[in-house]
Design a protein around this nucleic acid. Sequence first.
DNA 1: AGTTATTACGAATACGTTTGCGCAAACGTT
DNA 2: AACGTTTGCGCAAACGTATTCGTAATAACT
Lengths: 331, 331
Amino acid sequence: MAKRRSTIKDVAVEAGVSATTVSHVLNKTRYVSPEVTANVYKAIEKLNYKPNHMARSLRGAGTKAIGVIIADIREEFFAEIVKSIEKFCNRSDYIVYLCDSEDKIEKEAKYIQSLLAKDVDGIIISPVYSNTKISSLLDADIPIIQIDRYSKNIDSFFIGINNKKSALEATSYLINNDSEKILFVGYNDNVYTQKLRREGFLEAIEKNNRKVEYNIVSLDYMDNETLCTELGNAIDNYPDFDTVFCTTGKLCYNFLKAAMKKNLLQSQKLKILTYDNSKWLDLLKYPISSIKQPTEDIGRIAVEKMMNYLNSEEKICAESIHLDTELLIRK
Amino acid sequence: MAKRRSTIKDVAVEAGVSATTVSHVLNKTRYVSPEVTANVYKAIEKLNYKPNHMARSLRGAGTKAIGVIIADIREEFFAEIVKSIEKFCNRSDYIVYLCDSEDKIEKEAKYIQSLLAKDVDGIIISPVYSNTKISSLLDADIPIIQIDRYSKNIDSFFIGINNKKSALEATSYLINNDSEKILFVGYNDNVYTQKLRREGFLEAIEKNNRKVEYNIVSLDYMDNETLCTELGNAIDNYPDFDTVFCTTGKLCYNFLKAAMKKNLLQSQKLKILTYDNSKWLDLLKYPISSIKQPTEDIGRIAVEKMMNYLNSEEKICAESIHLDTELLIRK
DNA sequence: AGTTATTACGAATACGTTTGCGCAAACGTT
DNA sequence: AACGTTTGCGCAAACGTATTCGTAATAACT
């Protein structure tokens, strides 16, 4: 075996022309007579020649690959976004490196290094924190796009949702529907989305005339098991809430698990609202209202922007797009 | 800006040595005196030099990248496997190309081409069908590993579960717990896992003495909406079943959606069993028993095997490993 | 002192492409 | 017939690295 992959030179010899001509035929980069063209294609066919992307890239063309860095591919929210990114990249014959940061800045940094070393044409990232300086990204001269989360230290286009507004709307809805004591469950403020969602929540409470009590649970990112335990503790520490507002689908899932263990879900008295519209919500024994994020749009717009950059039709600039969410009420 | 990335030559000049020496320092591939070594590292630091993987790869080393081809990253089953693959690849400093075939052979073929052109060091694939010949894979001289699904036309290591056995066990359990009329919901026989799961199901029925009726729904892969409609039709066409056996989590989800629309889930009379243990199952209003697949192990073993191949400690051979599943009963 | 072994490094080439430059032949123009 | 223009293609350098030779200087032997 050990069949050597045939090169452009093999094709050239087989077709009786120079490698230059083969290259030009392949890339349609200058005129080549019909007969020669035909011969070249015949040779390519015969030798089953496939251009070597690496050599091509080395010469200066792009790699036709982009990196995508997200926190956890198992979360529906990220899976949907990645699916969308993948789909639209594929249409432009780009291929994606999947980088799962596990929400750890060290792994994030390592992946950025890897991606740059691999000479990706661009990076789409949902940064772990909103305040970490990723120096390597700064002087990389490839386009960066931030999705979902935004770090002010990365000078780039951003596509995500209107976090504050959506939280404000949702909280207002809760208050207007007789919530009097709300448990707000979110991650710590270093995460871009979390800070804004909390601000929206607080603003809604402030603006409202009626008396509303609340407690805030602020967590670090962790695995489901630990999260479940933590939320169990939270339930014990802050009793008597009539409403729960979770800032991510993962948090909501684990809250439900914890609540179930404590038999909190028997009486249908508790009102629950969460970000992320898991497709399973409709099938739960318990009604959960949700804030649906336009995941497909986020992925699509990110890729569209990236392609615009890469074809240099568009100059890179630090614009931001905040899409609206949809509040889905379940009773 | 447009800062040119510094090359090994720049480092060489800066350090007052030849590129050869820099290379040897970097790769520790021959003795270099301590002083020179120090100088080289100083120059590297100063110029912020990062080796160019592409040039390195072109020269013959691998690309330190592998391709992973699966059907749909949004399915929990695949997401978990990919997460696991990603995790273990990362430990060996490999990075993964995510390829979402959407269960379409054309997209699968296209991705294989892309991956080969990109010179990945190996490919981990869950093939769409068990009988399609993917000629490009055959004469690629990189290691291939099949996961979950197996195609006999791809001569490779395989890691997945014991489909027939698990289906047989599960079905036996159903029969021994008073199921008398079972609706079997699966995909068509071209998909490796599906054929075996059905065979296991049928064998269990055959072996059993008690009278058991059954109907089989055989579907093609499609999106959730269509699947839901199809399953709604199936429910109408085959009435009176007391048990449903779904061969994948996605099918189960859509069956539940369809069943809910038809108010089939009100009386807790229907027994439901499904492959794939979605984390949401515990929270459903309806008890669903499940066959849990060892997704993390599948990913881990696939990567371990791949790494063994790549370090050529191990010769490639067409071995198969079939892991056992776990039957989780919910009432 | 002469030979050999060892140490410490450099020059040159190869990997598979793309591309600037240039050249020969055919054609058109006066 | 002499010259310019076009047509169609090849030569060779370049991309950034790894590696096979080779070599000069020193050390270690007879």
